[in-house]
Amino acid sequence: MDRDELAELKVRLCRLEDESAINRLIMSYGPAADAGLTTVAGQLWSSDGEYDWDANGTPYAGSAGVDAMLQGNRHQSLINAGIGHFAGPLLIDLDGDSATALNYSMIMRREGERFYLWRVSAVRWDLTRSESGWRVRRRTNRLLDETGVGRQLFGDALNELFVEAVDT
């Protein structure tokens, strides 16, 4: 193996390691939130990050804001009644120390003895590499409902990340 091939192999390995780290970070959110480990879930965000979960609401600010949201009565009552966050596979686009990931977020709720799918959202994760590893700079959630905001989130992101890259 020559020097160029070794350099290319190193680049490919680093990319796979980054994708694995991003996958682990994002997939940690749901179990941490459902277990009531609010600090663990909050620490996935950078201190100046945002969690924009409602098209008409104010985003939660930083890791402390996410932690506080998860400690709130609404979230605590949901996990106490039985709820499960499920994240679909990630579509990751890496760009140096920044990355964007898209996936579906599904929330299951318990009613009596059965669970049912309660919400399905389109999610965009904007991430940044820090000294302590990858962190969420911004998570944007939009329901996939009749308003079309979820479809728009996916469409805009796919156009930005992939269509424009093909056109250049």
Rank of each mutant, 00 (worst) to 15 (best):
M1Y: 06
M1S: 14
D2C: 07
D4E: 15
D4A: 15
L16A: 15
D18Q: 07
E19P: 02
N23T: 15
R24M: 09
L25T: 06
S28L: 00
Y29L: 08
P31A: 05
D34T: 06
D34R: 03
T38F: 10
T39Y: 07
V40D: 02
V40Y: 01
A41N: 00
W45K: 06
S46M: 07
S47T: 14
D48T: 03
D48Q: 06
D48P: 01
G49D: 00
G49S: 03
Y51A: 09
A55M: 06
N56P: 00
N56G: 04
P59A: 11
Y60K: 14
A61Q: 15
A61T: 14
G62L: 04
G62D: 03
S63W: 04
A64G: 08
V66D: 03
V66E: 07
V66W: 01
L70Y: 03
Q71T: 10
R74T: 15
R74A: 14
S77N: 15
S77E: 15
L78K: 13
N80C: 09
N80M: 12
I83L: 13
F86T: 14
G88Y: 09
P89G: 13
P89S: 13
D95E: 14
G96T: 08
D97G: 11
D97H: 10
S98A: 15
S98R: 15
L102F: 02
N103T: 08
Y104C: 10
S105W: 06
M106D: 05
M106V: 13
M106S: 14
M108L: 15
M108D: 12
E111F: 03
R114E: 14
Y116R: 13
W118D: 13
R119G: 00
S121Y: 00
A122P: 01
V123R: 06
V123G: 01
W125T: 02
D126N: 08
E131Q: 09
W134L: 03
R137E: 08
R138G: 01
N141F: 11
L143C: 02
T147G: 08
G150L: 05
G150P: 01
R151D: 15
D156I: 05
A157H: 01
L158K: 04
V166T: 10
